[in-house]
């Protein structure tokens, strides 16, 4: 299962934006900032999760979409981030905001190390290894030798805090804005990373490893770094997710989470930065929607949605929009 996307995707490296694209992004940000004051706290919680999933999916997308290394186990990195947050608040008493970068670094290292054996494993073998990682994660978290830190089967509570600097915000409102700020920074960083020579190297390794090698790209190093950065993104998302859930337990990080992340990344659109946002919206809202359609067979409805989306948009939502955009442009030019 070498992830070889269409040649069109090779050209999908983020380029400099046109004026209206930039305007669109700014408008989106403004709306995103206004939202917490306009919606109920339940909807706000959902939107916070969309922001967090978007970060996690971007991480997975960098690895699977841009670098062609499939991961069925990113839930594990999400879990490591979440537990880092929970443990450092509870046991070390560190302030939550300072733990976010720590969780990122921890996950970078874990990802980098997991990438070492993964260097020798391609396609389906990597899929199996990451799948195994995902299956093993809850078992390891329950493992009694680690119970002192992880809280074992019971899990650990994560407290809420007040908004800083005396801002007149509830904790959930602040947490939303906090996550949004981090997401914006991480998206900007990824955009910068992927449009430069690093991005070319990463995608060259996906599309043509041998050619990439002859061009002098250090494939192993790049693959490891990509694994690390990818895990870092997903881990930061996990740390923020722990703050939202106010609770971590092994059963929140089953294989289902990993598979959801992969589904989100693919349906959003691989090798696309905005694909992460579409994917996050999908995995957050479509299950709810499916639940409204049928309580009895919610997941069957969800599965149908997945298959239908892939049938109509085999390159994901971002890929679909890109084709539409190009068609409109061609029509305007002719």
């Amino acid at each position: 299962m070498t992830v070889r996307t269409e040649p069109v995707m090779a050209a999908a490296l983020p380029k400099a934006w046109s004026a209206w694209q930039a305007t669109g992004v700014v408008a989106l940000l403004v709306i995103a900032v206004i939202v917490p004051f306009a919606v109920s706290s339940f909807h706000l919680l959902q939107l916070t999760m969309v922001v967090i999933y978007a970060i996690a999916l971007l991480g997975l997308n960098i690895l699977t979409g841009y670098n062609g290394q499939i991961s069925l186990g990113h839930g594990a990195f999400y879990a490591v981030g979440a537990y880092t947050m929970a443990i450092l608040i509870e046991r070390a008493g560190m302030p939550y905001w300072s733990i976010v970068p720590v969780a990122g670094i921890v996950c970078f290292i874990v990802g980098f190390l997991f990438g070492l054996p993964a260097l020798r494993l391609e396609g389906h073998y990597l899929a199996l290894s990451t799948f195994a990682l995902a299956v093993a994660t809850p078992q390891l978290l329950k493992f009694h030798a680690l119970e002192k830190w992880t809280g074992g089967v019971q899990g650990t509570f994560v407290p809420g805090f007040a908004a800083p600097l005396g801002l007149p915000l509830a904790w959930d409102q602040w947490l939303y804005l906090f996550s949004l700020g981090i997401a914006a920074a991480l998206f900007f960083f990824a955009w910068n990373l992927l449009r430069g020579s690093t991005g070319i190297a990463i995608t060259a390794i996906r599309d043509h490893p041998i050619a990439a090698k002859t061009m002098g790209i250090n494939i192993s190093l790049y693959k490891l770094l990509t694994f690390g950065v990818s895990a870092m993104y997903t881990g930061i998302a996990g740390a923020l997710g722990a703050l939202v859930a106010q609770f971590v337990s092994p059963d929140s990080f089953t294989i289902f989470l990993s598979l959801s992340l992969l589904v989100g990344a693919v349906i959003g659109g691989v090798a696309s930065i905005f694909g992460a946002i579409f994917g996050a919206l999908f995995i957050q809202f479509v299950p709810n929607f499916a639940d409204q359609i049928s309580k009895a067979v919610t997941w069957a409805v969800y599965g149908l949605f997945m298959i239908t989306f892939m049938y109509l948009m085999p390159n994901g939502i971002a890929g679909f929009l890109k084709v539409i955009g190009e068609r409109l442009r061609r029509r305007r030019n002719s």
């Binding site: 070889r4 992969l262 599965g303």
Partner: peptide, 27 residues
């Protein structure tokens, strides 16, 4: 229907079938 679809799209289709069959069995 997915003969010419990208590999990852097919993975998602199989996962979709997994969800569908699992959910139907539970029901």
């Amino acid at each position: 229907q997915f003969d010419n679809a990208p590999v990852l799209a097919v993975v998602v289709v199989f996962l979709g079938m997994l969800f569908i069959i699992n959910s139907l069995a539970g029901w």
